[in-house]
């Protein structure tokens, strides 16, 4: 059976959820061979094996943290040479897409980004994408070279599928370009204790109607009662009420949770682009004409300062 390379996104050996989702998708096409790079790469093997990796290729070097993107491209290229896979799958983060694109160019391959589903096809894997602010669904495939495909978080279920997960060390020679862009400083994000926005099963967002940074406390309180991530519309971020890392929309994150709760968000195209594929959508907004209500499964026309705290109390009461 053909092998499929899966690029592992991990933090010091802790594998992030989107990579486990990739292993589920990779098994539809072939046998997953994981590639883990940098500090803690070897510690990823047990988790990866549990989720279907037949092999885990690892390489630890300071270059992966000290320089931008290119060292990882060099490593994936080396892995491609070693394995001759049927496809290469990479998580659809900003960095993941850059790695995938440069790799594809080197391999003489096409690249597809932001797939939301993947299936085997007669002429290679077929990727489903959600485009034009999620108003269209396309199916595409790579027609030249080894398909390189990036997949968005929440595109598949994480499944246990125990496999050998044999660790092999990958031999990598860094290219001349590898050290071109130096990372001279790194400030880790402060942990909020909440789930990662793109990976969360529930997202609670606030927009212009929240009307101030301090008022985001009621959005956070609802999120915490549900174990949800917090999102914000561009209007709220541009006003300086909430960090850009939490922005949902065209120029922020695109999310596809089981449940999306929009509070004080009108639902402009910019925002819809980032949340329209959510499974269930509910909204609270003062304006009955707000376009967000065209998307909802359940909507409340009312003042979010009344409705949201009441909802939070009710959730807490029901959860006991």
């Amino acid at each position: 059976m053909a092998e499929v390379l899966v690029y592992v996104d991990h933090v010091d050996g802790a594998v992030r959820k989107p990579t486990l989702e990739l292993l589920t998708l990779a098994r539809r096409i072939g046998e997953p061979v994981a590639v883990a790079l940098g500090s803690g790469a070897g510690d990823t093997a047990a988790t990866l094996a549990e989720h279907g990796a037949v092999k885990v290729l690892t390489h630890e070097a300071a270059e992966y943290a000290d320089y931008l993107v290119v060292p990882k491209v060099d490593a994936l290229q080396a892995a491609h040479e070693a394995v001759s896979p049927a496809a290469v799958l990479v998580p659809s983060s900003a960095e993941g897409k850059e790695i995938a694109a440069r790799l594809a160019l080197r391999l003489g391959s096409g690249v597809i980004t932001d797939a939301v589903d993947l299936e085997a096809g007669d002429e290679g894997p077929v990727a489903t994408q959600s485009v034009f602010a999620a108003s269209y669904t396309t199916k595409s495939r790579v027609s030249k070279g080894t398909p390189v495909i990036t997949v968005k978080p929440n595109s598949a279920a994480v499944e246990a599928a125990p496999a050998a997960g044999a660790v092999e060390s990958l031999s990598v020679t860094f290219s001349e370009q590898a050290t071109g862009t130096k990372v001279t400083g790194r400030t880790p994000r402060e942990s909020t204790g909440r789930p990662e926005l793109t990976e969360a099963a529930i997202v609670v967002s606030g927009g212009r109607g929240v009307n101030g940074a301090e008022n985001f406390a009621i959005i956070e309180a609802l999120a915490d009662s549900l174990g949800a991530a917090v999102g914000a519309s561009r209007a709220a971020v541009d006003a300086g009420w909430y960090p850009h890392t939490n922005q949902v929309g065209q120029t922020g994150k695109s999310v596809s949770p089981q449940l999306y709760i929009a509070n004080g968000i009108s639902g402009a195209i910019q925002h819809r682009a980032g949340m329209q594929t959510s499974k269930t959508i509910v909204a609270v907004n003062k304006d009955a004409e707000a376009p967000i209500f065209e998307l909802v499964d359940f909507g409340v026309v009312g003042d979010l300062f009344d409705v949201v705290p009441q909802l939070t109390e009710e959730v807490k009461a029901r959860k006991g």
Binding site: I281, A288, V296, G299, V300, D306, V307
Partner: peptide
């Protein structure tokens, strides 16, 4: 979907 107007019970209905 279902749209309701908040008349004091909107949060509970949600």
């Amino acid at each position: 979907g279902t749209i309701v107007k908040d008349e004091g019970e909107g949060g509970k209905q949600l």
